[in-house]
Write a protein that binds this DNA or RNA. Structure first.
Lengths: 156, 156
DNA sequence: CGAAATTTGATATGCTTCATAACAATTATT
DNA sequence: AATAATTGTTATGAAGCATATCAAATTTCG
């Protein structure tokens, strides 16, 4: 077994990233993977993925909405949202209720358990996940980062 | 057909994102999708995905490396890199050459066509893709954004 | 040296995400 | 009333991502 250093398995010398280090999309993707990874570490004990967490947050802030509305604002396609809701509903985190005004649509509501899990998740995210980012970047930089990313999401 | 405004299909009022707008992972993912989308618009005429583009860049800056080394630095698992290389090789953009020093490994080399396509891709990326980002953020902000994202990739 | 362990590229496989077409039930349009 | 559109759903396929396994080649080390 050749093991020169504890890490760097497979490379003898570090490779040159070249213009990749200046390619925003590349750095963005790498950072996003890291952040999601840490999210799962922090909130994984509640068995919540980032996508599921985002759904619960939206249900809490927007009561009375149906599947299409929630899915659309999250960029989830309606067909793919069905299985996702099945999962949340089977764990009793939310419920589909037939709308009385439009019997085609399902109004989505958080259950008490869903609300409780969401509160715990929010605390984990704030105290572990976002806190670690704050420590790494500092509050000012973190705010600037969020602002620029939001701008890209909206206007790019 | 009820069509109040040209856009916003499916929602009557915009939903509240709530704490999602302050969740770095959420904003990061949305921004990343937008950037990749634009990358494909700009360089799609060359039939290059972001991942393929990153491979070609790495091959150019790191001649004489094998599949494991290239895949590892890009975070691609070796099994998944095989089909990717098959695609690039079938389009005559790169070649696998058996190493003379280690007959297990394949040295990856850019073909002339691969080099030419890469140059054209780089120009498209610089003149259309990154230029648009520069216009949106400004050079200073863009540099700060890159710096913070790199820091997250490395140290988070 | 020579047996055992490791590495490399590859195949098979499964899971998750993402995208499209189509359908029944219901509602809106005209 | 007839037609079109919307909602949730199913089926389906492509793409990304992960693991186990394999043969060939190399390295390690008794």
């Amino acid at each position: 077994m050749r093991k020169e250093t504890p890490e760097a398995a497979g490379e003898q010398d570090a490779l040159q990233l070249g213009e990749l280090s200046d390619l925003l999309g590349y750095v963005l993707k790498r950072a996003q993977l890291k952040v999601f990874e840490d999210f799962l570490r922090c909130v994984g004990s509640l068995q919540l993925t980032p996508a599921q967490f985002s759904v619960l947050i939206l249900l809490e802030k927007n009561p009375g909405r149906n599947q299409t509305e929630i899915a659309n604002t999250l960029g989830i396609l309606r067909p793919n949202f069905v299985a996702m809701l099945d999962g949340l509903e089977s764990r009793d985190l939310c419920t589909r209720m037939r709308s009385t005004s439009d019997r085609r649509s399902h109004i989505l509501v958080l259950t008490d358990k869903g609300r409780a899990v969401l509160q715990r998740a929010k605390k984990l995210v704030a105290s572990k996940h976002e806190a670690r980012l704050n420590e790494l970047l500092g509050p000012t930089n973190r705010a600037a980062l969020l602002s620029m990313l939001s701008k890209i999401s909206r206007e790019f």
